[in-house]
Design a protein around this nucleic acid. Structure first.
Lengths: 97, 97
DNA sequence: CTAATTGTTTGATATTCATAAAACTATAAT
DNA sequence: ATTATAGTTTTATGAATATCAAACAATTAG
């Protein structure tokens, strides 16, 4: 693996660490991991107590980092954890949350 | 373990994630872990290319979080990783850096 | 005593970040 | 058609961050 790929890997790690450094995002990620399946944003909101626009903002961040997937069904959006992406660069991390 | 202790544990985790979310701090932590022994700030500076005052700022952050120890000898300060603290809440993480 | 070395602190600056209210879009229900 | 639901975007605001130059210790060397 060349230096460029190493840097990219470290950048992804750092973005994941950034994601986990905020209490709200930590709870979102932890919740998604522990329930083990996708959740509607509203459902998430019932468990993680933050304003819905703040929630949307954080979810957008997670999406941009690339550690969540979103599926739209009707007027609902279901968010799920892109577990493989995380495991690939930081195996074993999710179990620690 | 009660909720308060859990919260404290998660707070420490989140602070560790914050520490690792910055490229400079990531390199410092990674370097300290991989060399496996304490390093002088100046020595660190030769490996991690950041301004010495920025370095000092980041090292202060790590100290406040509680994941490094500092020992003064003459005019040098030796920094080492408080590995046990990290391992306690996030076992296996350091090997991934 | 005067330099140089090692590191911290202060101050200024630019940037990013988190938060929430308000307006907005899209879908579903009545 | 209206209204309710689900979520996003915009806008504004305050707080936190990162960076670096310059001044400031404290120790050591010449």
């Amino acid at each position: 693996m060349d230096i460029k790929q190493l840097d990219e890997k470290n950048e992804l790690k750092q973005r994941i660490f950034f994601a986990l450094s905020d209490p709200g995002r930590y709870k979102i990620i932890s919740m998604l991991y522990h329930v083990g399946h996708e959740m509607g944003c509203n459902e998430l909101n019932q468990h993680v107590e933050i304003d819905k626009s703040t929630m949307s903002y954080h979810l957008k961040t997670l999406r941009k980092i690339g550690i969540t997937n979103t599926r739209t069904q009707g007027r609902q959006k279901f968010v799920s954890l892109n577990q493989a992406t995380i495991e690939k660069v930081l195996p074993g991390l999710l179990e620690q949350l």
